[in-house]
Design a protein around this nucleic acid. Structure first.
Lengths: 210, 210
DNA sequence: GCACGTCTACGACCATGGTCTAATGTCGCG
DNA sequence: CGCGACATTAGACCATGGTCGTAGACGTGC
């Protein structure tokens, strides 16, 4: 059983620190590293026996919560622990709305990190008070969660201003398929063209940019 | 010489208060009122001898600074005094970036309001420390100011998700003209399609919505 | 095993978007 | 007056976007 843990953070030193924590919980796990969101996405596709993803909120290639949504869409079964510098407490809930299992402050001590990792690989949310959804978060969760993984990837590409043809190429599908996904996305977002879809998506907090 | 002053605010009581202030500075001026941005736009088009616009930042039909840009585009020669509830001091500069001549807090006393009005109709900025542009504001000013009035109106319609055909109808021009404007807009914004244009425009703070 | 729904995928078909060329009229400016 | 910037429109032409019908793969429940 080759277990793999992906550590996605653009700061090499911090990757080292996270690696230490992971190794104390899962001594035999293989560890994959990624410094950009694109690299993380590739690693997630390639990894065998992926058990956990540690993801920095501020990564080159991602702003906001889209990175979480993207990786979660790719592998809905793998728990994602979001690691971030400060961000206050509100972020913890928002992060969960996009599919992460938990939120970890970068200034947490090693014990807390190990604890969170241990809980995450058992698919248990880390210790934290259960907070009832407030309205905007619930709306995000429902809308974003209502999209299939492929649809989400297409939508993120649209948010990048890409043409259907470019999206088809970068996602390895035909243009006809992209169009079909667009139709489904627009139906779910209750809009009539891609410009409105992009605007709505961005207003929901979705956005992949450097 | 029938001078007209437009008061655009969704709060009738506040319109009354502004009206008093205006009448003390310009006793003979005709006063037009508007409770929505659409009404304001219509009034601006119809008004004769329009000398001044008092505009609330938070109006039905407008979020952010688009309303200023729209009215300013319609009548670049008429000074606009923006009136807002609180908003801190940063707004004063941003408001100017979109074409307003000055910024007035709603909790200002009557004397300050009258003073600002008197200065505005002489096309003098109201008393305030001249603040050097910081980078984002300068970028907004250059980009938005670089658009012609009609182009701005078309862009705002695109931000509403409208099709060329719909834009043509609502602005009273042919679809060919809309396309011509779109081409010019995209060239100025340095993008290749309307979705990117909408995204850029919104990131610049432009947005008309209820 | 089979029906059912979901996701993914594709091609045909028509609507919309965008470029280019060209022409007309207005306005302010030197 | 000529010049340039802006606004407007048309027509041709091609690219792109979006809908519809269809089909296979997969999982769930009966």
């Amino acid at each position: 059983m080759t277990e793999t843990v992906l550590i996605a953070d653009d700061h090499p030193l911090f990757r080292q620190a996270l690696m230490l924590a992971v190794q104390r919980v899962l001594p035999d796990a293989r560890i994959a590293e990624a410094g950009t969101l694109a690299a993380a996405a590739r690693a997630v596709e390639a990894a065998e026996g992926l058990r956990l993803i540690l993801l920095d909120l501020k990564m080159p290639g991602a702003v906001g919560y889209s990175g979480i949504a993207l990786l979660h869409a790719e592998r809905p079964d793998v728990p994602i622990l979001v690691v971030s510098s400060a961000e206050g407490t509100a972020a913890a809930d928002e992060v969960r709305a996009f599919g992460a299992i938990g939120f970890l402050r970068k200034d947490s001590d090693l014990g807390a990190i190990e604890d969170a990792i241990a809980r995450a690989i058992q698919a248990q949310p880390p210790a934290s008070a259960p907070v009832p959804d407030d309205q905007p978060i619930a709306a995000i969760r429902e809308t974003v969660a209502g999209l299939t993984p492929t649809q989400l990837k297409v939508l993120l590409a649209v948010l990048d201003g890409q043409l259907n043809k470019q999206i088809a190429h970068s996602l390895g599908m035909s243009e006809a398929t992209v169009k079909a996904h667009m139709t489904a996305i627009m139906r779910k977002l209750d809009v009539r063209n891609r410009t409105q879809a992009a605007l709505v998506a961005r207003s929901l907090g979705l956005d992949l940019r450097h």
